[in-house]
Amino acid sequence: MAEAVFVGLPKRFVSLSIDGREVEVLEGSTILDACRRLEVDTPTLCQLDNLTPVNVCRVCVVEVEGARVLVPACSRRVEAGMKVRTDSERVRHSRRLVLELLGSSVDMSLCSAQVRGWMERYGAVPERFGVGAATVAQPVKVDNELYVRDYSRCILCYKCVEACGVDAQNTFAIGVAGRGFDAHISTEFDTPLPDSACVYCGNCIGVCPTGALMFKSEHDMRGAGTWDEGRQSVTETVCPYCGVGCMLELHVQDNSIVKVTSPLDHSVTSGHLCVKGRFGFEFVQRRKG
């Protein structure tokens, strides 16, 4: 007979207050989960539901009564009776400064409208550090036919490293190298991607919040001035290659597939694909000349 297996105690609800409003969430939830339950919009950059929180961007910080410093909502677990403030002067100040420090050093022009909305909400003025403020500007790395790396747009959120590593792909082709302001995402010794361990799954593109990692098709079209999201439609389908059943979202412009994504909340993919699903669409649009 099989031995009894301990499956853990059933989870309990924990109640806490956020901005004076009581909320109950399952124990083990994060403050961010609780904020979302109350529909308190919380800015996040390095957090993504399909990745382990690394809490490095610090834009989601909140004030917890009794804590000496602010805490990251994305990774701090709730405790019973916790009193959280998400809109105090201290919180607003740190969120504004994080957005300003990033905005002053990184090209954030391709960030989502949501990010621009947060910059407006917190009154972030990245220009106030002056014209001499150092940036991470550098040439775009175009070393393969599938995707480009424009690290002048990189906010160092670690998401691509996580997706390339244990959170999804387990390929470990990239890591964080250097330190301080010079810290950057890199292959070993900055080797071009074709010589690295990269398998072109493109899961790093899928999680990048700033457009630093981009389909080459999108990069080329942007360069030519033909990229127009207003003219794009999204068609959902299932990847035809193998039997796993990954859901694909084909982004189509002018009757051509220009990029492929998968929804983060899809039960099969959690947003992640392989090289075939992500990039293997060329044959569809190979038209007889």
Binding site: C57, G130, A134, F181
Partner: peptide
């Protein structure tokens, strides 16, 4: 000496020096 992990310190120490 900033490790470069979090934004306030990574960019903040740089800006502090510049200013």
């Amino acid at each position: 000496e900033s490790c470069g992990q979090c934004v306030p310190c990574r960019v903040g120490t740089k800006r502090q020096e510049e200013i």
